[in-house]
């Protein structure tokens, strides 16, 4: 009851400034919303803060008692990672296969997404469903056969093996996202370009791709994300040369006990590429997460 009364008063204000209507409607609940949001973000950040906190401590400090911030600030853990080849090569390996995978997925998915968004063809619905099921297939099912397959064709322990394996779920996802964005572009543009004498490839690259640039960015973001966070396949398909950073991290368990500080520092460094990528696509994140379909 009090809600609807408050709603009416806020309505009077909103009438004066219609542009702020959305905000005014939510006016009476501002406090509740801020509380929910603050608590939620705090809940998200606390574990990450704890990791950062630990990465800046010495192991003696970590194991000797709980401290809310580093008493003896040290960057030794980070220095170890950046100077030890077996550590930093893990990052290079991970980034290599993630980038190969992103480029592959997007370039394969672009024409296919166009076909799905513009044409009906024999078996289109079934094909789309089949693609979707591959996004949903559990990697655990594929771990062993992939091991056999990539050993057989001699790609085992190369970034290409992981990049191709990740195409299993990233290509369908990219098709799905791009199709959503492309369906938002009116067909008239295609027709006008054809009348103007553009050949299809030229139209696609010169006119169409700039129009869905944000969609391509979002799809690339998602390919990056899912390839970067996946470990089961990446670990199964590599041993030494292409070992991802996430697998290297298990090294911190040694006979002398856990090297907690080093583990935390390695963890923090895996968060950074993600954080950078998010920053670039922050304005499209919401639409992207809805796969271009809102």
């Amino acid at each position: 009851m009090s809600d609807s009364v408050a709603l009416k008063t806020s309505g009077i204000k909103a009438a004066a400034a219609p542009a702020a209507a959305n905000k005014a409607l939510a006016g009476p609940r501002v406090n509740g919303r801020v509380v929910v949001m603050t608590l939620y973000l705090l809940f998200l950040m606390l574990p990450i803060y704890w990791l950062v906190n630990m990465s800046l401590k010495t192991n003696t400090e970590i194991t000797s008692g709980l401290t809310l911030w580093p008493q003896n600030l040290t960057f030794d853990n980070y220095i170890t990672i950046f100077t030890d080849r077996s550590w930093y090569s893990g990052y290079i390996n991970s980034l290599t296969y993630v980038l190969i995978n992103t480029v592959l997925s997007i370039s394969f998915a672009l024409p296919a997404a166009y076909a799905f968004s513009r044409y009906r063809f024999l078996g289109d619905k079934h094909l789309f469903f089949w693609l979707l099921t591959n996004r949903m297939a559990p990697p655990a099912v594929f771990a062993l056969p992939f091991f056999n397959l990539y050993s057989a064709i001699g790609l085992f322990d190369t970034p290409w093996a992981v990049a191709l394996a990740h195409c299993l779920f990233n290509v369908p996802l990219a098709v799905w996202i791009l199709e959503g964005f492309m369906s938002g572009v009116p067909r008239e543009i295609d027709e006008t370009a054809a009348i103007d004498g553009y050949s299809f490839p030229r139209f696609f690259v010169k006119i169409f791709m700039p129009l869905i640039a944000s969609g391509i960015g979002v799809a690339a973001f998602f390919c990056f994300m899912f390839s970067w966070v996946e470990l089961l396949l990446a670990r199964t398909l590599t041993t030494v040369n292409a070992k991802p950073i996430a697998a290297t991290m298990t090294r911190t368990v040694s006979a002398s006990g856990m090297d907690w500080g080093l583990l935390a520092a390695a963890g923090v460094l895996t968060i950074i590429p993600g954080a950078l990528v998010i920053w670039f696509v922050r304005n499209y994140i919401a639409k992207g997460f809805a796969l271009g379909r809102v």
């Binding site: 998200l44 950040m45 996430a246 895996t270 968060i271 993600g274 954080a275 998010i278």
Partner: peptide, 16 residues
């Protein structure tokens, strides 16, 4: 700010 902070856990490798 909220969007970036919210998306952060999604981009952390699963074993991390």
């Amino acid at each position: 700010l909220s969007l970036v902070l919210m998306a952060l856990p999604l981009l952390i490798p699963w074993n991390v």
